[in-house]
């Protein structure tokens, strides 16, 4: 799914990954799979009449779930210690979420290396849905020395 940067070092960028476009079926499946039955995501009548929107919107946590797929595939064998996002914009049916990751810091910790990655999810170039951060921990000296 993703390719590692040639070197684990600050500034290195992971290969981007684009998810399949979000459909109304995706939103219905996610409502069932997540247990988040908020009608704002699946019921256009509710979205229009109760929330004052033109259409349903994607779950913010669906965007985060796609970022979660991305982040768990970045560094084989790494353990995810922290994962956070700030939701910037609402996704809509038809959006194909593109995830990117860039290494911010690489720090030696007891037993291994902590890699802090800045994450973003975009619906189109420059149109950010969510921005976030992950901390990956790699045991031993597998990360090498940057």
């Amino acid at each position: 799914m993703t390719a590692n940067p040639t070197k684990i070092e600050p500034g290195a960028e992971f290969a981007a990954w684009q998810a399949a476009p979000i459909t109304r079926t995706t939103l219905a499946l996610y409502a069932g799979g997540s247990g988040d039955h908020n009608p704002l995501h699946v019921d256009i009548d509710f979205a229009r009449e109760k929330a004052g929107m033109d259409d349903v919107i994607g779950h913010g946590m669906l965007t985060m779930a796609l970022m979660g797929r991305y982040v768990t595939a970045l560094v084989p064998g790494a353990r995810l210690d922290h994962f956070s996002t700030r939701f910037v914009a609402m996704s809509r049916p038809g959006d194909a979420v593109r995830c990117t990751g860039r290494i911010e810091t690489v720090e030696a910790r007891e037993g291994g290396t902590a890699i802090t990655v800045a994450l973003a999810a975009e619906r189109a170039p420059g149109e950010v849905l969510a921005a976030g951060q992950a901390v990956l921990f790699l045991s031993g000296d597998a990360a090498g020395t940057a």
Binding site: A51, G52, M61
Partner: peptide, 30 residues
């Protein structure tokens, strides 16, 4: 973290309508 008995059980005690809420930020430490 969503209560199966009522996924939005944090809203009623605060007097907040579901149609007015959005998710701002989310963080996990594992």
């Amino acid at each position: 973290g969503m209560n199966p008995a009522d996924p939005f059980d944090m809203l009623a005690p605060l007097g907040v309508d579901l149609g007015r809420v959005l998710h701002g930020e989310q963080a996990f430490d594992y």
